[in-house]
Deep mutational scan, measured.
Amino acid sequence: MDVFMKGLSKAKEGVVAAAEKTKQGVAEAAGKTKEGVLYVGSKTKEGVVHGVATVAEKTKEQVTNVGGAVVTGVTAVAQKTVEGAGSIAAATGFVKKDQLGKNEEGAPQEGILEDMPVDPDNEAYEMPSEEGYQDYEPEA
């Protein structure tokens, strides 16, 4: 019985440690998101679009440190934060509304985080759909 109880105690310690790591990862992701939003706020009209992409990228980098179902929630929060940063930029006159959601080359930025393969159960990952990809044929 002692062996059984000791095993359960060790398992509990492992769960607590994993929860603490997840909590730490979420806190880091939130900190990076805040950094990115402050970065966007300090940019001029020309830099705002690039700044919004930076927020998304920093958040995406930190999301990889967070495991399990938390990833889905962090990704949703990050996307809403990026959308909010863009709205703030438009409201303050840093950028025109028609410039939001495009990178410096004018290509749409939507789907940055949505296409990231995420499995809350950590069982399997699927690649994003290939609808947006084109076949590449090298020139002879």
Score class of each variant (00 low, 15 high):
residue 134 Q to P: 12
residue 103 N to Q: 08
residue 74 V to G: 02
residue 17 A to W: 12
residue 75 T to V: 12
residue 97 K to S: 06
residue 57 E to L: 14
residue 106 G to N: 03
residue 47 G to F: 09
residue 140 A to C: 04
residue 64 T to W: 03
residue 124 A to L: 07
residue 64 T to Y: 05
residue 138 P to A: 10
residue 40 V to H: 02
residue 20 E to L: 05
residue 37 V to R: 01
residue 116 M to Y: 04
residue 129 S to F: 09
residue 134 Q to H: 08
residue 94 F to W: 11
residue 10 K to F: 08
residue 68 G to W: 13
residue 30 A to R: 02
residue 33 T to R: 01
residue 113 L to D: 15
residue 41 G to T: 13
residue 31 G to W: 15
residue 115 D to R: 05
residue 137 E to Y: 06
residue 100 L to H: 03
residue 53 A to I: 15
residue 84 G to V: 14
residue 119 D to A: 14
residue 58 K to L: 12
residue 11 A to Q: 00
residue 130 E to P: 10
residue 127 M to R: 09
residue 102 K to R: 14
residue 97 K to N: 09
residue 74 V to S: 01
residue 44 T to G: 04
residue 127 M to K: 06
residue 51 G to D: 01
residue 79 Q to G: 05
residue 44 T to D: 00
residue 140 A to F: 15
residue 105 E to H: 02
residue 121 D to H: 10
residue 56 A to L: 14
residue 42 S to I: 09
residue 109 Q to I: 07
residue 20 E to M: 11
residue 36 G to V: 15
residue 61 E to R: 12
residue 120 P to N: 05
residue 59 T to Q: 01
residue 126 E to M: 09
residue 123 E to Q: 10
residue 43 K to G: 00
residue 10 K to P: 00
residue 61 E to A: 06
residue 42 S to K: 11
residue 7 G to T: 06
residue 68 G to I: 13
residue 123 E to I: 05
residue 80 K to L: 08
residue 92 T to R: 05
residue 81 T to F: 08
residue 99 Q to R: 07
residue 129 S to A: 08
residue 84 G to S: 10
residue 73 G to Y: 10
residue 120 P to M: 05
residue 124 A to M: 14
residue 19 A to T: 04
residue 9 S to N: 07
residue 110 E to P: 07
residue 68 G to F: 00
residue 117 P to R: 04
residue 3 V to G: 02
residue 92 T to K: 02
residue 119 D to G: 12
residue 110 E to G: 11
residue 49 V to Q: 09
residue 99 Q to E: 10
residue 36 G to W: 14
residue 77 V to G: 03
residue 103 N to T: 08
residue 110 E to R: 13
residue 120 P to K: 05
residue 72 T to L: 09
residue 65 N to M: 08
residue 85 A to F: 07
residue 121 D to W: 08
residue 60 K to A: 01
residue 30 A to E: 00
residue 51 G to Q: 09
residue 115 D to V: 07
residue 102 K to Q: 02
residue 33 T to A: 11
residue 98 D to M: 06
residue 139 E to S: 13
residue 139 E to R: 09
residue 91 A to L: 09
residue 103 N to Y: 07
residue 124 A to G: 10
residue 71 V to C: 05
residue 10 K to R: 04
residue 36 G to D: 01
residue 24 Q to L: 07
residue 98 D to W: 14
residue 63 V to Q: 01
residue 104 E to C: 02
residue 109 Q to L: 14
residue 17 A to S: 09
residue 45 K to R: 11
residue 119 D to V: 09
residue 48 V to G: 01
residue 68 G to A: 05
residue 70 V to W: 11
residue 124 A to Y: 12
residue 37 V to I: 13
residue 65 N to G: 08
residue 40 V to M: 13
residue 1 M to W: 00
residue 100 L to V: 12
residue 17 A to P: 00
residue 79 Q to W: 07
residue 140 A to L: 12
residue 29 A to F: 14
residue 32 K to I: 07
residue 113 L to K: 09
residue 130 E to Y: 06
residue 18 A to G: 02
residue 57 E to M: 08
residue 86 G to S: 14
residue 24 Q to T: 14
residue 101 G to A: 05
residue 14 G to Q: 12
residue 40 V to I: 13
residue 81 T to G: 04
residue 117 P to N: 09
residue 62 Q to Y: 09
residue 74 V to F: 08
residue 111 G to N: 05
residue 9 S to Q: 11
residue 20 E to N: 03
residue 120 P to R: 12
residue 30 A to M: 13
residue 70 V to R: 04
residue 30 A to P: 01
residue 130 E to H: 09
residue 42 S to D: 03
residue 38 L to N: 04
residue 77 V to E: 01
residue 69 A to K: 11
residue 58 K to A: 08
residue 23 K to Y: 09
residue 73 G to S: 15
residue 82 V to T: 05
residue 24 Q to F: 13
